[in-house]
Design a binder for these strands. Sequence first.
DNA 1: CTGTGTGAAGGCTTTCACAGCC
DNA 2: GGCTGTGAAAGCCTTCACACAG
Lengths: 206, 206
Amino acid sequence: MHKADIPRKTIYRLSIYNRALQRLRENSVATVSSEALATAAGVKPTQLRKDLTYFGQWGTRGLGYDVSGLSKAITEVLGMAKLQPVILVGAGQLGTALLRYGGFAREGFEVVAAFDADVARKRPRDIGIPILPMENLASFVSERVVKLAILTVPGKVAQEVANRLIECGVQAILNFAPAVLHVPERIAVNNVDLAIQLENLSYFVK
Amino acid sequence: MHKADIPRKTIYRLSIYNRALQRLRENSVATVSSEALATAAGVKPTQLRKDLTYFGQWGTRGLGYDVSGLSKAITEVLGMAKLQPVILVGAGQLGTALLRYGGFAREGFEVVAAFDADVARKRPRDIGIPILPMENLASFVSERVVKLAILTVPGKVAQEVANRLIECGVQAILNFAPAVLHVPERIAVNNVDLAIQLENLSYFVK
DNA sequence: CTGTGTGAAGGCTTTCACAGCC
DNA sequence: GGCTGTGAAAGCCTTCACACAG
């Protein structure tokens, strides 16, 4: 199960499988076939089975997969077995919204602090976690051993802030800024660009 | 330039190219080489050139591409030549945040209305567009000819709401709900699942 | 007989190498 | 000479067909 051999797209789908498995477990389903799980995840059964073989054999032929066993295995592979501390950089409109949203905590992440150039900026409501000045970034990241960062700064400063994060030891960035980040190969970046997603859809409407 | 022949991944990159071109135009750059534009977009020059050939020949050999001409062509291909009306369904925490965010308008979209099961729900600040009850959905969509919808409802009701949107004539959905939507093939869906994006990154950190 | 695991085939995307035009 | 346009090759991912285990 060495990391390098699992395709990126498979990794992405593993999260989807895991979520479906969690729902099955809530409904006290003990076993599931690749057919059923694939349908729930919106993929073909063969794809699901192939995805799973990248890190082992988890099914019982003639029967299917053990729901909680498979879920545990996927959680392990994804590196989600323990709670990951995350920081958010850029506590503006979108950043504060994501903090309040709370969809992260539910899935095993804890946003432990936010950073912003203007700590005193007016914000409609309290957010529940400290908003710290950028000066504190380096010390905080190394003390708390933070490896994941959510980047919600304006596009113009995104590269600069990303560079700083990487210097501090951050290994992966979830980038909401409308900018292409140039980073060393060892750093993982996922781009979530809302405007581009919409533009993309606009192509498909008639 | 028939739609079917342009790969989905290319479509996605076209938006990125267009954004880079816009920045070049702001800086009064008239001509750009595939090399330079590719660097700005974070891709290889050959990839850029191949992408562009899917819908014509836009460069001048020995010289490069005309910035504003290429930008216009891409805008046209993406179907972004005219302002697209968009609705947002689910004005909860994440939904209202996206409305205030405003990153959409900048790129040629206008969010014309939001819908929610609970119109009277407390919201920290005014949002600038009407929040309408779900009952008004069908009439609004057909009157204003809305083809694009942003879905920010809880995962449990996402499929149900999506079905309704499709019935009303919506052709493309930007789905933020943590759920796999099952839709007819003619409907385009882009999923933006924040928790899954983070999980995905968690795999790459050591 | 049911349903997983997997080598091989097929399809799609990226990259290469170089022809063609300014 | 410089840079685009493009067929061919390579690489990657998905799907198929079927062997194999329970």
